[in-house]
Structure formats: structure tokens, C-alpha cells
Amino acid sequence: MPIKYENVSFTYNAKTPFSYEALSSVNLEILDGSFTAIVGKTGCGKSTLIQQLNGLLVPTSGEVIINDYVVAKSRKRRTKKIKELRKLVGLVFQFPEYQLFEETVEKDVAFGPKNFGASNEGALKSAHEALRLVGLDESFYKRSPFDLSGGERRRVAIAGILALNPNILVLDEPTAGLDPRGAREMMALFKGLHDNGTTVILVTHDMNIVLEYSDTVIVMEDGEVREITTPLELFNKENDRYSLETPLLYKFVKSLSDKGMALDIRMIKDIDSLAAAIALAPGNKR
């Protein structure tokens, strides 16, 4: 069952002088097993949009449907067991390393599963599995999360969500502030999870990531969904209406085309396909 937003609007501080409409009549559908990127300028409502996925924010009007769960204002419609929804949808906030609080890494990661009713051993088992996934070995288990480096802390925090085994993983700029290598490893981790059937929803400003990993892109502007498309289509359009940065790969391809190399841009998605296209380009000596 896909995720569905039906006419979702959201206003912060409604009926006060600070009232601010962050989302207005959003309609969209996210398919099961997709890797969806949500892009748009800061303050366009991306974070508000994803916080409705596990009921942290409830739409001022309209409703969000996730499998059989409904997030809506109406008491009749909305799901009572919000906790089950939170287990289904793992939400990783921006800079999640600030949510760590336990004495040891393994205890912190096991905190989530325990909240959802796992036994001590069961929670630790999920914690160890999640830590393995994010690439932290046994030597980290008994360390204090506050002694780790920023990147390691981020991994621990993400493991804290992965330990819940969510079917839908929502990530708010998971690579922000990481060094390039750390960011690559992080994205490889999410790709691996996606290949194993997890639906991944990713908020990001990095268009290289959008091009390389996502299969669907949702473009947002001023609290509205402007476009739901594929990365290839989005970046192939010449105009930069949404003032999105062009991915490096495409800048290179466009520069090559401008200099007279005939390339079929539709065939290019990564370095390999670019290399293949260049090798095949007419006029190249073989």
C-alpha cells in the first residue's frame, strides 16, 4: 500500500499572530519500494511534509494515509495506535546525533526497540544488527556516544531508528555536515536497505545524490508540490525554475554537448553510463 497525501494543509500557530501556512493542499502518492527524493528551497515545507508521516504533526486539513493508518485531525478518521505507525515509519531528523542520551552506544540504539515493547535481549539483538548495518563494530558497543566523532554519532543515531526495522525510512538531510566519504558510505547504506525492500524517502539539497539514488523526485516550493517526476526528466529540462543546482555529472555532460560532442543525455545516469556514452559517441576513434 502506498503513502497518500490527500489535500493536506498545515498551518503553524493557527489563530495566533504567528500563524504561518507551511503546506497548502498537498496531493501526492509515494509508491511502496520507491526511493523518493524531496527537494526544494529551505523553508518550502519539506520537513513539515515528512513529519506528518508518523503523526508528529497532524494536518490542519486533509489527511495522510500510510497503509491502513490515517493521520488526520478528525477523531473519527485518525488512527488511534500512533505508536504502531511510528514503528512502521522510521523518521531520522536532521542532525540526529543530538538525540543521543544513554551511557553506552548499544543501550542508546536499543532504546527504540525497548520503547516498542521488545525484551532486553531482543532489543540488544536488534541494536547490534543495526550497528552492524551502519558499519560500527563490537568495539563501539560499550563506548559512550558522547566520546565519538560527529560522523560516528550520526551513525549511532541512525542505527537507533534502523533498530526498529521500519518498512518506510524517512531521512531529513542525512548527509548534511558529513565528509564526502562519510556521506557516500551513508548513502550506500540507504541504497542497501532500499534494495532489501525498504521504501526510502529522502529530503536533500544535494542534487548529485538525487540523480544517483532516487527514482522519484518531488519538487516543492512555497508549501506546494510543484512537480512529481524522475531525476532524469527533472535535470534534463533546460530551465532552472526551481533554482535547483544541476548535478555535477550533468554539468559535465552539458559542457561536453556544448563543445560539440553528440551525447544522448537520456542514457546517462552515472559515471559508468557516461563513460559508455562517450566511448560510443560518433567521431571517436575505436
Binding site: 508518523n54 508528529l56 522510521g90 531528523f93 543530538y98 538525540q99 543521543l100 532504546f111 520503547n115 526498529l164
Partner: peptide, 28 residues
């Protein structure tokens, strides 16, 4: 919000769970 996403319930629950919930807020 981050802790609620990890299943913390700040409003309901037993005293022991509540203390843990508050702790998960205060320390960070």
C-alpha cells in the same frame, strides 16, 4: 519529536517509563 519517533511517549506510561522519557529529553 526525535525521541517520539523512537517510540517515547511523553504523556502516558508508568512512572519509570516517564522518568526515562524525561531523561531522554533532558540529557540532549
Amino acid at each position: 519529536n526525535a525521541q517520539a519517533s523512537r517510540g517515547v511517549d511523553f504523556e502516558h506510561g508508568k512512572v519509570k517509563e516517564k522518568i526515562k522519557a524525561i531523561l531522554s529529553l533532558i540529557v540532549p
